[in-house]
Amino acid sequence: MRIFVCIKQVPDTETRIKLSSDSQKIETGGVKWIISPYDEFAIEEAIRFKESHGDAQVTAVTLGPKARVNNALLTAMAMGADDSILIDSEQDLDALTTAKALAAAIKAEGDFSLVFSGKEAIDDSVSAVGQMVAQILEIPHASVVSKATYEEGKVTAEREVEGGTKEMTKLTMPALIAANKGLNKPRFASLPGIMKAKKKPIKNVTLDDLGVSAGQSKVKFTNFALPAEKPPCKMIEGDPQAQVSELIRLLQEEAKVL
């Protein structure tokens, strides 16, 4: 049984974002790259599925500049993925073109049972690639999944929607699950795991191999800008009665929100 996990490498949460001199992109020198946190839930879920169902092969798939994203695949394999596919692309692609490439890479491997992804990557948070991959592969999906159970040919996924409402959907496999926080607790890569990962195979493919080109991207991010500086915080002094009265006055008269 083949299982695929789509992952993306993103700048660490703590990264201070600096813009390039022409403001057309962010400065990536000095950025610490990590696997997007939601993708870690996806990797963990795939490994747990394998651990409880035996005969599965877990393949991590990513897209990005080879020299950089190789590390993300090594981490996934150190956690427990069996092998990887690296789609080399120096250029940024939009969500749909990325999905086309990922889906083509998965399709080329033959039959599969499950595809996992994170519910979104924390860099642009477009939150679309998983659903698009599912559409292209013509399989059902559930996004923002915080609990999943597996039985013969079916996945039951719990997703949290508006206002804390929970929806349970049952999908016929093959299916795609886009992971939310709560799905599981991702393990850390162990030292033996890291050693083993170095020997696990990474298949390198190009966009050309997959019949996709960067020029197909319909959307580009341009003209980056840092947010406008907020005026400094107005500290409201006094006892609680005085503080609250002044706050209400400011909310009414200055902010005009009450």
Binding site: R16, S127, F221, N223, F224, A225
Partner: peptide
């Protein structure tokens, strides 16, 4: 396709902006 748009006007051109990197910066969507 684009989600999380915070500024949008549609005329002869489409002007579209959204936050990136969890609001650490803004970008235009072209």
């Amino acid at each position: 396709y684009m989600s999380d748009i915070t500024e949008l006007s549609i005329g002869d051109d489409i002007i579209c902006k959204r936050p990136m990197y969890a609001g650490k910066c803004m970008a235009q969507v072209s």
